[in-house]
Design a protein around this nucleic acid. Structure first.
Length: 402
RNA sequence: GGUGAGAUACUCAAGUGGCCAACGAGGGCAGACUGUAAAUCUGCUGAUUUUUAUCUUCGAAGGUUCGAAUCCUUCUCUCACCA
């Protein structure tokens, strides 16, 4: 029994940035393994963007691990708090979404989330349910539990306060409301990114204040770096790999990360054991395994997870055809138009160039190819026929000139 | 409420009457090199088949002028200092 708990703990601790109250998690595990008692793990998500990317899955995967150890996941959609916008981002106050949209978003969340989480051990919840009921008096009461000095301890607020950047009062409410969620949900563990530390601890604090009878443990996951290897993965920065990305896109994006970053992805995203990863890393360092092969394996694993093995292998083959052998991808978007047409215009029509000016620049640089042949004449007219147009290494289009 | 400062392209940031489609940096795109990458080097980075040109763009609207991102007026927004 003790060994089981120990093993579970090790698996849970893998890759996490910080755990607060490890003892409590151990107790929960013990209660599960000995008495089969479940416990609740909360994680909050934004209601506006049901586009999950690998950054989110770091958290989801950890929750999936916990599900195997008796956790019921409370998948919280912050439809109420979404109005305020978490101060950690630069988000300004947002408009409240109508119910219909929220429910629709929730549905698409489910589609994506259950590729990782076990649906039988997951409850989807909305915080408007209890926060709306709280009312003005409830919110005022909530604010009395905390003072401004403490609030300003939050790193983000402290910085802005010192540099005299504006802090909106509503922003103070965000951590309080998120914390109140923990009270309403009576969760045992809350998960979040390291940037959420303050908010996560708030939940713990408020559970005590409101006499919930338990104080949630906190598991913080590191923020996964995006494709650029510097900034955290986010949709707005465009450096993300979405769980709904097409197999070939997903494969290509994974292959495009730097060698250093690959190990980070291995640690946080792969299902391989840490020992296996360490071995692989050694083999790459000693030259036994080519770094590209290691990266391909990672990409295969991830594409398989969100699609399937066949598509993953197809994506790999496709990738090597296009990039290694310089062949053409299999599915190229097709267009047709009346001819004759000026090459620069054709590229714009096929959406592989933003403007004819840009087309001309690209032609001058030798970045444009027709049927694998470099184009040197920027005045070129395309007569009747079918052409494969290409800009750079990645942008392709098939054009039929009538 | 009072006073002062500011708003320039994707972002930061120069420019204070013509040589400004606007220095520079980052980012992005492309070429070389590679493992598709990273690093490095190079070019490009408002639009337009008039390309040593034309048109649109420097918070918004007017005005002065042969000519304005630059000067004047009003407005909008942001910031700072004081209360």
């Amino acid at each position: 029994m003790r060994i089981m708990i120990q093993e579970a703990m090790n698996e849970i601790k893998r890759g996490v940035a910080e755990i607060i109250d490890v003892e409590r998690i151990e107790k929960l595990l013990k209660d599960y393994f000995e008495n089969g008692k479940n416990y609740y793990v909360k994680a909050g998500f934004d209601p506006t963007a049901p586009d999950l990317h690998f950054g989110h899955t770091v958290l989801l995967q950890k929750m999936a691990v916990l599900q195997k150890c008796g956790a019921i996941v409370q998948f919280l959609i912050g439809d109420f708090t979404g109005m305020i916008g978490d101060p950690t981002g630069k988000n300004e106050t947002r408009k409240k979404l109508d119910k219909e949209t929220v429910l629709k978003n929730a549905e698409s969340y489910k589609e994506q989330v259950f590729k990782v989480l076990d649906p039988t051990k997951t409850e989807v919840m909305f915080n408007s349910l209890w926060l709306e009921e709280l009312g003005a008096s409830g919110i005022i009461e909530l604010t009395t539990t905390f003072n401004v000095a403490r609030m300003l301890e939050r790193e983000d607020f402290e910085k802005r306060y010192k540099s005299q950047a504006p802090i909106s009062i509503s922003e103070f409410l965000y951590p309080l409301l998120q914390g109140y969620d923990s009270v309403a949900m009576k969760c045992d563990i809350e998960m979040g990114g390291t940037d959420q530390k303050f908010n996560l601890l708030m939940g713990r604090q408020l559970q005590r204040t409101y006499n919930v009878g338990k104080e949630q443990a906190v598991v913080m996951m590191p923020l996964l770096e995006g494709l650029d290897g510097v900034n955290k993965m986010s949709k707005s920065l465009g450096n993300y790999i979405g769980v709904t990305d097409e197999p070939s896109d997903m494969f290509g994006k994974v292959l495009s990360i730097s060698d250093d970053l690959m190990w980070r992805y291995y640690e946080l995203l792969s299902a391989l054991s840490l020992e296996a990863i360490a071995t692989c890393k050694d083999d790459v360092a000693t030259g036994k395994v080519h770094p590209k092969v290691a990266k391909e394996n990672l990409a295969l694993e991830l594409v398989t997870r969100y699609h399937n093995v066949d598509l993953a292998n197809a994506a790999k083959e496709e990738f090597n055809n296009v990039h290694k052998k310089n062949e053409l991808p299999t599915d190229i978007k097709e267009f047709s138009c009346d001819g004759p047409i000026w090459i620069a215009k054709a590229l714009v029509d096929c959406k592989i160039s933003p403007s004819t000016s840009q087309s001309r620049r690209d032609i001058k640089q030798g970045a444009v190819k027709i049927n694998q042949e470099k184009v040197s004449d920027e005045q070129l007219q395309l007569e009747q026929g079918e052409y494969i147009l290409q800009v750079g290494k990645r942008k392709f289009a098939k054009l039929k000139v009538i």
